[in-house]
């Protein structure tokens, strides 16, 4: 669905943010795009959405060049930015004005999601809190049934119950032909949601793997020692260490934060190429 080959990008009068970036993403998954501040996560999402143009390289989304911003492309992509604008109108009027642009818009789902997020159709969007606006926009994005949903920091501003609800709603309302790309710093919020991890650092993708393949190769656990023969990476935590080892044929829950720190510190965790496509 998303094919990127040798993509380069730089902002005016700044050094290159991406140089020869390549990546491929297929439908039917929820990908978590992780990276440090300024790594270029949002920029990459903007290029995929077509609101920023790459300097060179190939970028194809569902067979379209996003920069052309053709209506047939835009009606299948929904971008929820971290900072967004919503007009001063009611939820009902917003839906009435914007849903016809999306041919697969599911009004029944929209109503159900609004109920789950406890939002009223007659609420004036302008008068809602940031978290409520975000919940509304996420609901609208899901109801569009767009093939590609791009969410930039979707859990920012959501309270704890809303974050739990967000995960539940995301997990239960996606079709097999949809692809969701979530960019976030708050990895704990999406740890149980994503099935693919992409880590961006210094203008390139340093990890692109699905969760299943990571847990097949790595084991995440606690230890009282930081250094041992089979420990690939360790971090001090209260009462000991969180460690990553090679798979010990034991089940373990992936610790994305630990994995992220290990990968961005240049630890070699995998035998295969880190930029391998899924």
């Amino acid at each position: 669905m998303i094919n990127i080959k040798n993509l380069s990008f730089s902002y005016k009068k700044q050094r290159k943010l991406f140089d020869s970036l390549s990546m491929e993403l297929t439908p039917g998954s929820i990908a978590g795009l992780l990276g440090k501040n300024g790594a270029g996560k949002t920029t990459l999402l903007k290029m995929v959405s077509g609101i920023l143009f790459p300097d060179s390289g190939e970028l194809s989304v569902m067979g379209h060049q996003p920069a052309a911003r053709k209506p047939s492309f835009l009606s299948d992509v929904f971008f929820v930015p971290e900072e967004f604008y919503l007009p001063s109108t009611s939820i009902r009027l917003y839906i009435k004005a914007n849903s016809p642009f999306y041919p697969s818009f599911d009004s029944v789902l929209m109503t159900r999601l609004l109920n789950e997020f406890e939002l009223e159709q007659e609420n004036i969007i302008d008068q809602m809190s940031y978290g409520q606006k975000k919940k509304f926009l996420i609901s609208f994005a899901l109801a569009t049934k767009c093939k590609l949903l791009i969410l930039d920091e979707p859990t920012n501003g959501l309270d704890i119950p809303s974050k739990i609800l967000f995960r539940k709603i995301m997990a239960g309302n996606l079709d097999d032909d949809q692809l969701v790309v979530i960019s976030t710093h708050q990895v704990k919020d999406i740890e149980t949601l994503i099935d693919t991890i992409i880590i961006v650092d210094n203008g390139s993708i340093i990890l692109h793997k699905d969760i299943a393949s990571i847990t097949q190769q790595l084991h995440f656990t606690n230890s009282t020692v930081a250094e041992k023969e089979d420990i690939l990476y360790s971090e001090a935590v209260p009462g000991g260490y969180r460690i990553i080892t090679r798979q010990r044929n034991e089940e373990s829950q992936i610790d994305i934060e630990l994995l992220f720190n290990a990968v961005t510190k240049g630890k070699s965790l995998f035998n295969t190429s880190p930029t391998q496509a899924v």
Binding site: S49, I51, S75, P81, F84, Y85, F101
Partner: peptide, 18 residues
């Protein structure tokens, strides 16, 4: 006039001519 509005506007599924 603002980045947030620009995102919203550019992402509306309509052509530049429209």
């Amino acid at each position: 006039r603002s980045k947030e509005k620009t995102y919203a506007y550019l992402m509306v599924p309509a052509s530049p001519a429209e």
